[in-house]
Amino acid sequence: MKIKNKFKLTYEIPTSSQSDIAFLLIIFFIVTAIFFERTGIIFRLPKKSSQTVQLSANEFIKVEAFNDYLNISGNETEYEGLENALMQLSRENKKNVAIIYFQEDLKYGNFIKIFDVIKKLGNIKISIKPMERV
């Protein structure tokens, strides 16, 4: 007679460490997550059907934008001096329209600098036009 082997191998997945694994994964997710908040300068576009308005030279602030400097209503200024120059002009003449003429190779970053200041000054409507070639 053969003696039966009474050893039985039982296969079990260890569930006791499951919570540790889950918490470790949670900690990993929390640590690596980035709170993605986007910031931007928002502006409204005129409607397609809106009519163009003609303004005389003394009714708007003329800003000629170059990469190195700006020309504001005939006065040359650096980008750093833009805020003061525009503030002065809008206070003195109560102009709330600015027309930005940009040089063909003007960098987008420089436009944002101008736009930043205009937005800071408040209620100023802007028009953007490419500079006419001489």
Binding site: R44, Y108, P130
Partner: peptide, 26 residues
Amino acid sequence: KETDFKLIHNIIEVLKNNDYEKIAFT
């Protein structure tokens, strides 16, 4: 920031013609 603004201006014109109301520059 180093992109030519001329291109951005052209995009703005396209958006204006497509009746977009707002533009946000990030």
